[in-house]
Design a protein around this nucleic acid. Structure first.
Length: 263
DNA sequence: ATGTCCACTAGGAGTGGA
């Protein structure tokens, strides 16, 4: 069972590229972020043609999340309670069947913009709400996954340049404390579990040739409970799909993929 | 670090967001 997270930076602009990736990688379940599209405009039939059901929590212009699954999927909820006015950023579904079923949530966490902007404080509050919400169902004996674009760099290993970014947006102690609080619910960063010392990134700015200069951040995570870690076989950041393909522009984020035993 | 890309409004190019 392959599960993945990917901030696609606009579903309309990325649809053909996503199709290439689905055909190449054949993931079973995918959390998508930044659809930038209303629910009614999502091309469900095109996903169906590739074997994927799709549940969405979108909005016009910005934000928006979805779960694709070629396993049975039951939509559970949309929106972080009390934080809906901050955008469509959360969707949760049960995917798979029997012992293999996973309680799967994907998130597009607030960016925060900069420390002087009002969104920064609202970002911290949003994470407090996320912790409170997730605490009600994250349990070590259940296969629970929280994944998505967290817009936080958890440690100095996860940034291309801690010295110039320490204390700045994505890199503050306050954000890192919020990330730790989520982990402390009993979740493991699946990539870091398999690669404790590797510097690897999941996002590179479009500007300034950042990808080729290796100026990236690791801000996209698959977090899992002990029941998921027990099933974990392999995790990869699919940086090949940060590159142009057949003349199609990639997202500024790479997909992150985990391979799990079935049950 | 500011060299790009996306969506919106508009009916061509500027704006806001990341």
């Amino acid at each position: 069972m392959q599960i993945a997270t990917w901030n696609i930076n606009g579903l309309r602009a990325r649809m053909d590229y996503i199709k290439l990736w689905l055909e190449e990688r054949q993931p079973d379940v995918v959390g998508l972020q930044e659809l930038k599209m209303e629910d009614g405009k999502v091309p469900l039939a095109e996903f169906e043609a590739l074997g994927y059901r799709c549940v969405t929590h979108g909005q016009k212009s910005w934000n928006g999340v979805a779960i694709l699954s070629r396993l049975p999927i039951e939509h559970l909820e949309s929106g972080l309670p009390g934080q809906e006015e901050f955008g469509s950023r959360l969707i949760r579904a049960r995917v798979g069947e029997g012992d293999a079923a996973v309680d799967f949530t994907t998130l597009y966490c607030p960016n925060g913009k900069n420390l002087e902007h009002g969104d920064y404080g609202r970002k911290l509050t949003w994470f407090d709400s996320l912790r409170e919400w997730a605490a009600s169902f994250v349990a070590k004996d259940q296969s629970v996954v929280l994944c998505g674009d967290f817009n936080i760099v958890p440690t100095s290993l996860d940034t291309w340049d801690e010295s110039s970014h320490a204390g700045g947006i994505f890199h503050t102690d306050e954000e890192r404390a919020r990330m730790s609080a989520i982990i402390d619910l009993g979740l493991t960063d699946l990539y870091r579990e398999r690669e404790p010392d590797t510097q690897a990134f999941s996002w590179w700015d479009y500007r300034g040739g950042s990808f080729h200069r290796k100026h990236g951040l690791r801000i996209d995570f698959l977090l899992g409970t002990p029941a998921v870690v027990k099933r974990l076989r392999k995790v990869e950041i699919d940086r090949d799909f940060r590159k142009k393909k057949d003349g199609l522009t990639a997202s500024d984020h790479a997909p992150v993929i985990a391979h799990l035993d079935v049950g």
